[in-house]
């Protein structure tokens, strides 16, 4: 009896401590998600003064919407283009920055710098770089005797241009996680391996890389979710154009909600995005987690 009471007291104490963050979580995360979920089954656009329940009509319409499929495919390509490359680049940069003997802090700063710059500013910088005729890239291509290219104005190029920019922007950020991860690997392990005469590739493959797996996992999830969350550059650079060639899911949601004023459809799109991200996170956590060593 007394034990039960003591236990209850301990639990209550824990709950009380959790209460503030719990309230905020409920208020600003769960409640809106639930509201969005409910709204996604309603017609709530400019044509309907009062929202009314319309079942899965929004989802049906979405399936038939070419633009939806286009932005979804775009987003998948965007993720495939940015996630592995930026993560690999981050790892390479971290290994280099960690090994560098001279100018260590300069190299780190140089790598990290793009991360500190706000996405809006980055977009403006790259807007200039990609400008045809007198943009920085145009000049470089001129030196190589290549013709001018309209990077942002052409459907075939625009996605590559975006992917490249985002990799540049993100890799430095992920590098910081890898640097921290590398610091956590005991120097003794490397000394031990060097006693055995392991080549640096073997050391990387058999020691460094597996021990960085938790970092890789974490960074991959961040990178993947970022590939769905990062759309600021679209506002500045292309507005999703030309003809949706650079449009991404979140920007399309924004357009649907605040330009088309179709709240119902925007909610349905949001739910799709939330489910998508949850699935990926779940796969990464439950599927890959077992193969990863955690200290």
């Amino acid at each position: 009896m007394g034990e039960l009471r003591a236990k209850w007291k301990v639990n209550m104490y824990a709950w009380l401590l959790l209460l503030p963050s719990l309230i905020f979580l409920l208020l600003f995360t769960f409640y809106p998600v639930i509201q969005t979920f409910i709204l996604s089954f309603h017609q709530a656009d400019l044509g309907s003064p009062e929202p009314f329940f319309n079942g899965i009509d929004n989802y049906k319409q979405m399936v038939e919407d070419e633009v939806f499929w286009k932005v979804l495919t775009n987003n998948i390509w965007f993720a495939i283009g940015t996630v592995p490359t930026s993560v690999a680049l981050a790892l390479a940069m971290a290994l280099f920055a960690n090994k560098a003997i001279r100018g260590k802090s300069f190299i780190r700063t140089a790598y990290f710098y793009p991360t500190v710059v706000p996405m809006i500013a980055v977009a403006n910088i790259w807007l200039f770089i990609y400008t045809p005729e007198y943009g920085a890239l145009s000049h470089v291509m001129e030196w190589f005797g290549k013709g001018d290219m309209n990077w942002l104005g052409d459907q075939k190029n625009v996605m590559w241009a975006m992917i490249f920019m985002v990799i540049w922007k993100e890799a430095g950020y992920f590098m910081i996680f890898y640097l921290a991860g590398l610091q956590n690997i005991s120097q003794e392990l490397y000394e031990s391996a060097s006693m055995e005469g392991a080549s640096s590739w073997t050391v990387f493959r058999r020691i460094t890389f597996p021990l960085l797996m938790p970092t890789t996992m974490f960074v991959s999830i961040i990178a993947f979710t970022n590939s769905f969350k990062l759309v600021d550059h679209l506002v500045i650079m292309t507005k999703g154009g030309p003809d949706n060639a650079s449009n991404l899911l979140l920007y399309y949601i924004y357009e649907t909600a605040f330009s088309f004023w179709d709240q119902g459809m925007a909610s349905a799109l949001t739910i799709v995005m939330v489910v998508l991200l949850l699935l990926v996170a779940a796969f990464q956590f439950f599927g890959m987690d077992k193969k990863i060593h955690y200290n």
Partner: peptide, 12 residues
């Protein structure tokens, strides 16, 4: 061969 103070066992 060498034995290190903290054993240097590969944790994974």
């Amino acid at each position: 061969s060498m034995v290190f103070q903290n054993y240097a066992l590969y944790p994974h």
